[in-house]
């Protein structure tokens, strides 16, 4: 006797309709940001909802760019030309996210490999410390971090946001998961061939954990870009803001100019969404690997 497998047609139609409705619901905020950024004020404050801009205008962007200004960069004590502060915020954010990404990947690659393959004494203790720290709420230590940064004279400095991001041990755990699969014989062979530890790492280990590094890189980049609470506490002057923090500040002081805020929200989110879309395969892999309990 063969039992009918698969779901009934009715349920399948129902779930497709539900999925599409939910997808539209999840897409709507983004749609509203992008169209809102180009809507004239008459559309924004209309009595009836205006789903599509009656005409596409740049006015919101102009008011965003003249609202605040800042030197575009600051290197070795020299200020760059003055421009819209939003550009400076974007430059700061990219610098922060790239630095956090590079440092996290470099440190986690080495320590993840070490935890997975080196049989050093105290290894179990170090690993359980890392697991325990990962289960603790990160935001709870923000105030002590602030105290620490003021001792290190890093207050209102972009490095005060970068360093704690690198310290978070998720990356170590993720790379360890990837490095477990490196066959011990290959490492043994490299050692017998007389390769130094560093050489083994760069020529044998690194190529094998590359997918893990890719996943960690994109993961760190996006999380660092969006870590609003840390940025809020550490950064306090206009020219050091990140884009998230800048937009949040604009919201606090001009909470009625919706067009300007949507232009700001678009500027803060579209670049990171593009990065996500390009690398989303790596990203998905990172999420799944990082979750496997080891």
């Amino acid at each position: 006797m063969k039992i009918k497998t698969g779901s009934s047609l009715g349920y399948r139609i129902f779930s497709w309709v539900m999925l599409i409705l939910l997808a539209l619901f999840f897409l709507f905020p983004l749609y509203w940001i992008v169209t809102g950024a180009f809507k004239p004020a008459t559309d924004i404050y209309a009595r009836k909802p205006v789903m599509w801009p009656s005409e596409w205008v740049m006015k919101n962007w102009q008011s965003l760019f003249v609202k605040r200004t800042a030197p575009l960069f600051h290197i070795f004590g020299i200020d760059g030309p003055t421009g819209p502060a939003a550009f400076r915020w974007l430059i700061n954010t990219v610098f922060m996210a790239v630095m956090a990404m590079l440092l996290t990947c470099a440190t986690a690659a080495m320590s993840g490999y070490s935890l997975a393959k080196k049989r050093f004494r105290g290894r179990a203790l170090v690993f359980s410390l890392i697991i325990a720290a990962m289960a603790l709420p990160k935001q709870v230590v923000l105030i002590p971090l602030l105290k620490e940064m003021s001792i290190l004279k890093l207050m209102n400095n972009i490095w005060a946001v970068i360093l704690p991001t690198v310290g978070w041990p998720f990356g170590v755990f993720l790379i360890k998961q990837f490095a477990e699969s490196i066959p011990g014989e290959i490492l043994e062979a490299a050692r017998i061939d007389g390769a130094s530890e560093m050489k083994t790492f760069t020529t044998v280990v690194f190529p094998m954990i590359k997918p893990g590094i890719g996943a960690l890189a994109i993961f760190t980049f996006i999380n660092s870009w969006n870590d609003y609470f840390l940025q809020l506490i550490m950064l306090s002057s206009n020219e050091n803001y990140t884009i998230s923090l800048g937009i949040a500040t604009l919201q606090a002081e001009t909470s009625v100019d919706m067009g300007l805020l949507m232009a700001g929200a678009a500027l803060a989110s579209i670049p990171i969404i593009i990065v996500f879309l390009i690398f989303q395969q790596y990203f998905t892999k990172g999420i799944t690997m990082g979750a496997v309990k080891g």
Binding site: A106, S111, S114, L115, V140, P144, K147, L163, W168, F201
Partner: peptide, 25 residues
């Protein structure tokens, strides 16, 4: 030696910006 040398950069950040703040907290 090799194990801890490879761990060192991570441990510096981890102890400095996670463990010590927890104690301060």
């Amino acid at each position: 030696v090799a194990g801890y040398l490879f761990m060192a950069p991570s441990l510096i950040f981890f102890i400095g910006f996670v463990i010590i703040p927890m104690f301060i907290c």
